[in-house]
Amino acid sequence: MKKNKWGLIILGLVIFIIVITFPFWYGKGKTSPAPTLSLDTPAIAQLKEKRCVEDTSFMRESHMKFLGTWRDGAVREGKRLHTARDGRVFEVSLSGTCLKCHSNKEQFCDRCHNYLGAKPSCFSCHNIPGEVKK
């Protein structure tokens, strides 16, 4: 009886290890192409200097935390203007400022979020300009 027990335990462990490492060996060698983000919008085309509120690498890495500070500042402290590091002043507004330039949410925000499986809930309340008619 004793031997039998160990056999079962080892079998269980092997199955456990196979299941837990499944994503690693299943995806091995496969590549999924990185999303290409489109900056082709009328508002961006008109910009002389193609620069977001802060520089691209900062926005790419930290836009979520950055938008979090915008959100808390605007809602809780009434800070509705943001002075960027280079001195330009922006209205603190997701629909009004961010989406004014990035009017192609599907080719910009969504592509990366879908690729990474990120599901921000911003737009369950915030309006997407153009989707609602004035």
Binding site: F66, G73, G78, K79, R80, H82, T83
Partner: peptide, 13 residues
Amino acid sequence: IIPVSNSPEALSP
């Protein structure tokens, strides 16, 4: 902590 702004206090319109 990410420095968000250089301005000491946000302007109010």
